[in-house]
């Protein structure tokens, strides 16, 4: 049977993906959130890496499992496989490089073709410490986010500005959406991991994820 082991108590486990062009700072956003670390010499992410962090929302323990993906085109086919099952996404651009903002439309499209349409999305303008060479205005990014029904925030992983808020914002929103049972797999089997055994288990919201254990 499943080797799943609940060695840590939590009420919900949410899968969140970090996507966006190469070099926008996805890995540093995650390391800042998960370990409060920042590195000037972060290596390119090859494939996917992941980290977890547990936060409190409304007295509930929410464990976020965050998948950090490679930004370069070559790795897209490999990494998009990891979108499935995610209930939240941070779509990141570098506010000092306009092209990375323009490409977020493509990232969003790809994300939505692999996930539930109700996935919680936050558009993140990273590198706010480079605001003196800003190439995307707050208003423009906000308007785009509204059009895409996404949240928007600006962060600096370097100066540790807004990073935790961005992640907890997404997680809190997911918690509320899940509470309303808005998310559903629906009729689209492509929303599920391809080629993997799926054990779908209808259960009440009040049942905690870790208490369900293996099926």
């Amino acid at each position: 049977m499943a080797a799943y082991r609940a060695d840590e108590e939590y009420d919900y486990l949410f899968k969140v993906v970090l996507i966006g062009d190469a070099g926008v700072g996805k890995t540093n956003l995650l390391s800042r959130f998960a370990r409060d670390e920042f590195s000037f010499e972060t290596k390119s992410t090859i494939g996917v890496e992941f980290a977890t962090r547990t936060i409190h929302v409304d007295g509930k323990l929410i464990k976020a499992q965050i998948w950090d993906t490679a930004g370069q085109d070559r790795y897209r086919a490999i990494t998009s496989a990891y979108y499935r099952g995610s209930v939240g996404a941070l779509v990141v651009f570098d506010l000092s490089r306009r092209v990375t903002f323009e490409n977020t439309a493509r990232w969003l499209q790809e994300l939505r073709s692999h996930t539930d349409p109700n996935i919680v999305v936050m558009l993140v303008g990273n590198k706010a410490d480079l605001r003196h060479i800003r190439a995307v205005s707050v208003e423009e990014a906000q308007a785009f986010a509204r059009k895409e029904k996404a949240f928007f925030t600006e962060t600096s992983a370097l100066e540790s500005i807004n990073v935790a808020d961005a992640f907890t914002g997404v997680l809190t929103q997911i918690y509320h959406v899940v509470g309303r049972k808005v998310l559903a797999i629906g009729d689209d089997p492509s929303a599920l991991p391809i080629g993997q055994t799926i054990n779908i288990d209808m259960k009440d919201d009040r049942q905690a994820a870790n208490k369900a254990g293996c099926c």
């Binding site: 499943a2 799943y4 994820a209």
Partner: peptide, 19 residues
């Protein structure tokens, strides 16, 4: 053992496993 390692994922009222 590795092949059987699964992760329970919450997706609204459903849960499923990632292998």
């Amino acid at each position: 053992h590795l092949d059987a390692s699964k992760l329970l994922i919450e997706l609204g009222m459903f849960t499923f496993y990632m292998q």
